[in-house]
Design a protein around this nucleic acid. Structure first.
Length: 192
DNA sequence: CCTGCGATTTGCT
DNA sequence: GCAAATCGCAGGC
């Protein structure tokens, strides 16, 4: 590989514990149709985790979380915001990683057009609802195969080792104290 | 700078 | 019927 973006990530990368995947995704990249950036903040969700949508078992919505790794789980939050997750763990075990913030790399003009002309670049992708709007990710991406579709994740150079920080997840009421959020220390691009 | 609140839809009880 | 993995705006300091 060359440059800041490495090889496209495939099922094997995602078929692991969501906490491991969440930590290793920091510094990787998320793109849709040439627009995207470097992942700087993630959260993990697991089947035995009360905050996870799969905790209630298999439903129409949660079914994808139980399916093969490397698929997208996109859902509508608060009736307004689309949130983008990657399904992890092998087929049959439910888990996911929520992508919470990106450092914009490509397609800044298209991001600004989608997010509004007066918005500071700092706020383009700093938040899970914001980054899906900036990249144009919506319900059509739910259940998509991220190894082959228009939305894809890409590895980081072996030389790049992000300075990781861990803390509690944001915006949840159940299991709110579990330290299952990862971000890049001192990054100006994280949420909040 | 900070805090508080309304938007708007869906999934599940 | 209600809570929800959020965001942007209004208003106060």
């Amino acid at each position: 590989m060359s440059g800041p973006v490495g090889d496209r990530l495939e099922a094997g990368f995602f078929a692991r514990d969501p906490r491991t995947v969440a930590a290793e995704l920091i510094g990787c990249a998320l793109f849709r149709d040439g627009v995207g950036g470097r992942i700087v903040e993630t959260e993990a969700y697991a089947e035995y985790d009360p905050a996870c949508h799969a905790h209630v078992g298999r439903t129409d919505r949660s079914e994808v979380l139980f399916g093969p790794p490397g698929r997208a789980y996109v859902y509508l939050s608060y009736g307004i915001h689309q949130l983008f997750n990657v399904v992890t763990e092998p087929d049959g075990t439910a888990a996911a990683v929520l992508i919470r913030a990106l450092e914009p790399l490509c397609g800044l003009e298209r991001m600004r057009a989608r997010r509004g002309p007066r918005r500071p670049d700092r706020e383009l992708c700093a938040g899970p609802g914001r980054l899906t709007q900036a990249l144009g990710i919506g319900a059509a991406t739910n259940q998509a195969d991220l190894a082959t579709g228009v939305v894809g994740l890409y590895g980081r150079a072996a030389s790049e080792a992000p300075d990781l920080e861990v803390g509690p997840r944001i915006g949840i009421t159940k299991a709110a104290d579990w330290p299952w959020r990862w971000w890049e220390r001192d990054s100006p691009w994280v949420s909040r």
